[in-house]
Design a protein around this nucleic acid. Structure first.
Length: 217
DNA sequence: ACATTAATTGTGT
DNA sequence: ACACAATTAATGT
């Protein structure tokens, strides 16, 4: 039972070196399974535990009051949601939405342990700082994309991210879904996709997109 | 196999 | 952005 957890930790989080830390992890944390398509954290929800993903893929969105969303980035095995770290210190509510796009397993680290662990386990301290840094960089990249790039470039960005994260050339997304995640209208996406198709970068199917070669874009 | 309907995509303003 | 046309996929008969 706990063997799964143990091996999951050592394969996806090899940076956790202290043996006492690892055994404490085993004691205090449990695995949570989230089926594909289900939310991990909803916008505005209290954060009581930090998810460390060990299987599957998780999409992170920003969401506004009337349900507009904006895709930010993917979380993969070995990643943690850094946004939730900040919530621990301020017992804040979540400012993002997290959605499992594949069947996903996470280790749930209770937030109450954070201050203690941060102070005594160096590898945990480093991990938190490092992932915070990585996510901050991604946020900046996302911000640049919106501020300085035109929509067609953003779309290519978006497709690249999906291709890389999901590790496939075939994306099962409707134009509507893409538009939603990029916070634009469906028509615009349709038109941009058609341009990409004409350049031979993608092939359009119904609720399906085959990526041929994005460098042609 | 065919008709009906719903969902997705295309186009013009 | 909106309205509507066209096309494709899904479902029932």
């Amino acid at each position: 039972m706990d063997e799964d957890l143990k091996s999951a930790i050592s394969t996806h989080f090899p940076e956790f070196t202290e043996t006492e830390f690892k055994s404490e992890l085993l004691e205090e944390c449990n695995i949570r399974h989230i089926p594909a398509g289900n939310p991990l954290v909803e916008m505005g929800q209290q954060i009581r535990s930090i998810p460390l993903v060990i299987h599957g893929k998780v999409k992170i969105f920003r969401e506004d009051e009337d349900g507009h969303e904006l895709f930010l980035y993917y979380l993969e095995p070995g990643d943690a949601c850094a946004i939730s770290f900040s919530c621990t210190l301020h017992d804040n509510i979540s400012k993002v939405k997290a959605l499992a796009v594949e069947d996903t397993d996470v280790i749930s680290v209770p937030v109450r342990l954070m201050p203690h662990w941060m102070s005594i386990y160096r590898s945990w301290y480093r991990f938190v700082i490092d992932t915070y840094n990585d996510r901050f960089d991604e946020l900046l990249a996302a911000l640049d994309s919106i501020a300085f790039h035109r929509l067609d470039e953003r779309l290519v960005d978006y497709l690249e991210k999906n291709q890389r994260a999901l590790d496939t050339d075939v994306l099962n997304l409707s134009h509507q879904e893409i538009a939603f995640e990029m916070n634009t209208s469906r028509e615009v996406i349709s038109r941009l996709l058609k341009k990409l198709e004409q350049k031979g970068a993608v092939k359009i199917g119904r609720s399906k997109l085959e990526i041929i070669d994005l460098t042609l874009a």
